[in-house]
Nucleic acid binder design. Structure first.
Lengths: 242, 242
DNA sequence: TCCTTAAAATCTGTATGACAGGTTGTTGTC
DNA sequence: GACAACAACCTGTCATACAGATTTTAAGGA
């Protein structure tokens, strides 16, 4: 049963490659069956029979979806539908940066645009627990301020917590996808704030944002966020980031 | 040379699975060599030797990156670094929608946030050709207004053209990633505009945006865009979209 | 010498078979 | 009825084979 000898559909085959077809078949199966995260998918063997292709093809399809984090795979178990994850988006952004198709500044412009909105939404919709988590990240930035690495991680957590408090997972998805870029450039911005004073002022900015969210004042929160981004971008430009 | 018999690195193996390791090796190769779009990657055979794993593993890694559109593959040719493409992002968004982890309204909120910015940037940065392309899409909407399918495609092209005119590929990436969702819900909004008058008014809104961009007035352009989105969201809510 | 063309080497696409190891369902015993 | 051993199923990885596409090399002629 060599693949090219028995074209299952001699008429219309728009996408080139059996793997692409298999990927589509799997995603369509999810849609057609109305599967939810955690629900199991057909086994590779079943898919092999259904599509009448080799296991190689089916496996490459499953693996591709797994790489995009649309499904979860593990040995012995069937693949399951995955919860929303930022994996694929992160990789696309990283790819764009490393191949110099997008610049760090362009990412920051998008981040600013989005986070001006998430911070306003967070001020309006945050639960008490979310407000506490945001404030906590800001506090941890101050407490660890002699350890840049730690400050950075709490900074990233701070922005992700705000996105989560916006109660729109698409915002969370995008903000989180940018975290990788932030990890790669954050230190540069930090170094331009040479004095302790400048560094503490930057941390103060985060506390102001957290306070505004706690108070439920979207306009004030957005103002502080704008200021924060303007200074961050300025720091990057001063450091000569293209 | 059975895989599990000769652990190449008996000490630290953080990521579970050889395929993940291979994916990382490839992306790191791109970074380390400073490859640009179009540049060729090592052959599968070369990668197989370098990583000391089977071709199966290497192939699944390549295929995964291809599915995310980070690399281009075709028979006989070596894989090459891909230009920035929205493929993976679209699939993530689609997945979120079909598994009901995100709602259409949430996508529209993100679109509104982003396109309020792209339209302003487009007004400031558009070339004459870009302004013409945007206006052309609006005109084609009017000319084909008895054919909903055609109107939709020109509508989508309109928004993507604005994103392109923002001269920030990250915006283009995100806006384009949402086009799939738009294709799946657009008709619903169109139907709520039952009269020709209502439909033509909606098209007029697009022309107003195009004019503002042509005039180079970011504030006016953003105002028209806001109005457009508010009406679109209202139309979806009227139609009972969750 | 240079151009053309045919053969060889290389590469990807797909299929098949094999086996290790994990997971789940079944059965049989106590 | 509880528990343990076993069988069935499933994924992870490897090896091999071959078709078809592409690139490289070599040969031959102008």
């Amino acid at each position: 049963m060599q693949g090219s000898m028995e074209p299952t559909e001699p008429t219309s085959e728009p996408s080139p490659g059996l793997v692409s077809a298999a990927i589509q078949a799997i995603t369509q199966h999810i849609r057609a069956e109305g599967l939810a995260p955690g629900d199991p998918l057909p086994s590779e063997a079943a898919m092999t029979r259904q599509l009448n292709v080799s296991r190689t093809v089916v496996r490459e399809a499953f693996r591709s979806l797994s790489a995009m984090r649309l499904i979860d795979m593990s040995a012995g178990r069937r693949a399951t539908v995955a919860k929303l994850d930022t994996g694929a988006m992160s990789m696309v952004i990283e790819h764009g940066i490393t191949t110099q198709q997008i610049s760090v500044q362009q990412v920051y412009d998008v981040r600013r645009t989005i986070e001006m909105r998430t911070v306003a939404l967070a001020a309006l919709r945050r639960t008490d627990a979310e407000a506490a988590a945001i404030a906590s990240s800001a506090r941890l930035m101050r407490e660890n301020f002699t350890n840049p690495e730690a400050v950075m991680e709490h900074d990233i957590a701070f922005h992700e917590a705000i996105a989560a408090a916006s109660h729109n997972p698409v915002f969370s998805l995008i903000v989180t996808a940018f975290s990788g870029v932030t990890r790669r450039t954050w230190v540069i911005g930090w170094r331009t704030r040479s004095s302790d004073e400048a560094q503490l002022k930057m941390i103060k900015g985060h506390e102001d944002i957290a306070d505004a969210i706690l108070k439920g004042d979207p306009r004030l929160a957005a103002e502080h966020m704008a200021e924060h981004f303007d200074k961050s971008v300025k720091a990057l430009i001063d450091a000569g980031i293209a």
